[in-house]
Amino acid sequence: MIVAEQKTLDEIKSLLGDARKVLILGCGTCVTVCFSGGEREAAVLASSLRMASQLDGHPRDVTDLTVQRQCEWEYLDTATDRIKDADLVLSIGCGVGVQAIAERFPNAWVVPGLNTKFMGLPTEQGVWTERCAACGDCVLGVTGGVCPIARCSKSLLNGPCGGSEGGHCEINPDVPCGWQLIYDRMEKLGKLEMLMDLQPPKNWQKSRDGGPRKIVREDLRLPHEE
């Protein structure tokens, strides 16, 4: 899932400017599951902003609404009237959601209430950890299902480096060394010999280095009408 966390109330207040009618738009997908931007968080933030603005002496009309997914037009369209009626939309979806609102509603002023952090999973209750860096050219098949791009601090393809100590990364003793994880798993699976094959330099053009990415699936597209 996409994992995000809420900005501080002070930062959110500073983003609201002089908007009087504020719509907090939650998203019912990834950010609901990671407890940062779902229906509950939207209601809590709305209540917080109403009270804080009243105490600041500039009361705002803050309401909230949560759509199933902010990253698809069809779901965003269900909120059209509320978005058009608001002075400002505070999106607590991920960065995709914020941009989807901006694209779909050219006249709406939209600001983010979350910081989108990474793609990851909950490793225990209340803890999320990064697992995928969306590099665009998956190597998990040669590393035993442990990603060297997301889990090695240096994204090494032939690790570990000299900073691996006692199974931990030199950047922080709380961070496990990605390559130690890979080695341990390959050893357990009896596939250590696979690590003897050196991986060639990665083509980073398939990642962010190649600019904004796009996928076109012709089998899913309908012919354009003339």
């Binding site: 109330l9 809590v44 009270m51």
Partner: peptide, 8 residues
């Protein structure tokens, strides 16, 4: 913590 941030 939230109530402290809000000012309540």
């Amino acid at each position: 913590k939230l109530l402290d941030e809000i000012g309540i």
